[in-house]
Design a protein around this nucleic acid. Sequence first.
DNA 1: ACCTGAACACCGTTCAAGT
DNA 2: ACCTGAACACCGTTCAAGT
Lengths: 183, 183
Amino acid sequence: MPLRQADVLAAAVALLDEVGLDELSTRKLADRLGVRPGALYWHYASKQALLDAIAEQVLTRMAADLPDTGDWAERLRAFGHGLRRAMLARRDGARLISTMNDVSPLMMDGFTQMVDMLCAAGASFEGAVAGVDAVTSFVNGYTLEEQARKVGRVPREFLDLGFATGLDIVVAGLQARVMPPGA
Amino acid sequence: MPLRQADVLAAAVALLDEVGLDELSTRKLADRLGVRPGALYWHYASKQALLDAIAEQVLTRMAADLPDTGDWAERLRAFGHGLRRAMLARRDGARLISTMNDVSPLMMDGFTQMVDMLCAAGASFEGAVAGVDAVTSFVNGYTLEEQARKVGRVPREFLDLGFATGLDIVVAGLQARVMPPGA
DNA sequence: ACCTGAACACCGTTCAAGT
DNA sequence: ACCTGAACACCGTTCAAGT
């Protein structure tokens, strides 16, 4: 039976996990699908479009468990942890997300949801935007680095602890700079 | 006269600014130097070695103006601003630095200098490391994103303000979580 | 010491033509 | 609708041989 877009995407995700982003080529993907390289272009307009689709799929994990209980700090931390978890779930996930040309719709969604949440908790709009931006920048920066420098060098437990501590620091910064005294 | 390593490096930096990281090829570089592609491999062992050399050069700017006056917060902010400035000084500078396989010695230097400084100001070693890591992760994440999403879309003034605000938030988090009450 | 010539093993993408 | 065949314009890298 003929290929569908979903088949191409699934094979691409599997190939990414096996060979990594640098070695992910359209020709290898075509091989794996038993098809000529040109055939892929019937399903996706370009390699970049395919990478965008992979990125979007990676982020569905994050969107799935966006927090809806707890105070603003707990929710923000859950957002940060969820974003990192989604990126770590696939090889080179952080680089894939961070270097997409356009921001993913799912990412935008999560971002604005957090901004709204902080505003509801008493933050100004500008403060909320700066705060969520600080959190996402930190998460992207941290996860990108831990995933790029080869995974075995530092035990995962330390990386997790370092992340949690850093995220705590950023959230404490929000407490001090953008949230009202009582929140 | 024959080429020296410094000539190759200088041409590579110039080419990077003109065409960007994705379009920077050894063959274009060889063309520009009036030489065959293979000739480059006498001067650098691989393209990656050349990219590492460019990255190191980008970071000398940062190392040059590491702060040595002011309280810990001012110095930490100056470190963050200097790191961003160095990355923004070259096209795709953030991606170049953030996706190097090994951390640059200059980066390590700046990192440990900041850790020592925070310890001298009263922080625990673990706290200082987590704090500096939070700052660098934020700076890398923010700068990577602002430089990747095409430069014209948001006025530079807004990007600068967003960065300064985010950095303030992170530093305020250090104040709350890793520095002693009086510092 | 420094570079050429020439190759090797790859890339992403296009497009007429087939089925 | 979906794919082949075949090409086009590229890559990074190696290495004998030249000067």
